[in-house]
């Protein structure tokens, strides 16, 4: 009998599988398909202090082994998330959830975090300083170590729950940003957010996405994510949530060997709504195939 339990910032998970923010809604709609209690946790849809409709459509483009999105943080706002969405999720999911938070100013981040931090269902705050699809904020905080540290410090000061900072891969040196947020008090980091990309329609001769550019995700980005998790693991002591193109149990093990304590599964949920359930189901057999008895023991094993 293999052991799939892991610990993330002091909170035990039955397995390291967490659907990534923006690919699983607020979770409860997936409970119509299967018992989502099989999941380690759920990172819910990115939430801002005020409701947002997001960007114009088209917001989606297909790419080789992946996709671009420019949804732009559509969400009903922090109050509605706390009052309506999280209780609906709590009715079908027993575990702690990861509240993903975005903002356009330090004050936005702290205001939204304060509301979500107080929600009983929330286990961790995942502070998204890396959304490539909003202007005047979002990723701007994640591309400078100083700005990333400033948001982290401000959120850390008001939050009672562990603060995990979600990092952008759209930087020259992700390690310096990771170290800056660790020094500023982050309890963990999650990486990678999407890589900025573009597709152009040959018939219209214009970009496919209304916003022209979007975030690339899917198996195409996995080697980039594995490399970045590997680099960050060498530089920080706080736990890492690894993500980027994970679609199979084998990918989970690879990401954990690179240094991830838990993983998020993103784009795979959109091509197969049962992807996370199937990864959880397959994990023990794949662990046995590779001679792994305790999943937690392999974290950073590739170093």
């Amino acid at each position: 009998m293999v052991k799939t339990e892991v610990t993330l910032c002091g909170i035990a998970l039955k397995n390291p599988i967490i659907p990534a923010s923006g690919t699983f809604g607020f979770g409860y709609e997936f409970a119509e398909l299967y018992d989502i209690n099989c999941l380690g946790s759920i990172s819910v849809k990115g939430t801002t202090v005020s409701p947002r409709f997001g960007n114009r459509t088209p917001r989606i483009a297909e790419t080789p082994s992946g996709m671009l999105n420019s949804v732009g943080l559509q969400n009903p706002g922090a109050d509605a998330v706390v009052e309506t969405e999280l209780p609906r999720l709590a009715a079908v999911f027993d575990g702690p959830v990861m509240a993903n938070v975005s903002g356009f100013s330090v004050g936005d981040f702290t205001a939204a975090c304060e509301k979500l931090d107080a929600a009983p269902q929330v286990g961790w705050l995942e502070v998204n300083i890396s959304c490539p699809n909003v202007h005047g904020g979002g990723m701007a905080f994640g591309t400078s170590p100083e700005a990333a540290a400033e948001v982290t410090r401000a959120v850390r000061k008001i939050a009672k729950k562990p603060v995990i900072v979600k990092l952008s891969p759209n930087v020259t040196d992700i390690v310096s940003v990771a170290k800056a947020v660790e020094d500023a008090g982050a309890d963990g980091v999650s990486l990678i957010n999407t890589l900025i990309g573009m597709r152009i329609d040959l018939r219209t001769k214009k970009p496919v996405l209304a916003e022209k550019k979007g975030g690339l995700s899917g198996p195409a980005v996995r080697p980039v994510a594995v490399r970045m998790v590997y680099d960050v693991y060498e530089a920080v002591k706080i736990p890492i949530v690894g993500m980027g193109g994970i679609a199979r149990a084998e990918d989970v093990i690879e990401m954990m060997l690179a240094g991830a304590s838990a993983v998020e599964v993103g784009a795979a949920n959109l091509t197969d709504p049962f992807a996370c359930r199937d990864i959880v189901k397959d994990l023990p057999a794949v662990m046995e195939r590779y001679g792994i008895e305790d999943l937690e023991s392999i974290i950073g094993g590739a170093h």
Partner: peptide, 10 residues
């Protein structure tokens, strides 16, 4: 996705 998860078609 086609089933409501990604908000791509809002």
């Amino acid at each position: 996705c086609g089933f409501g998860a990604c908000m791509g078609c809002s």
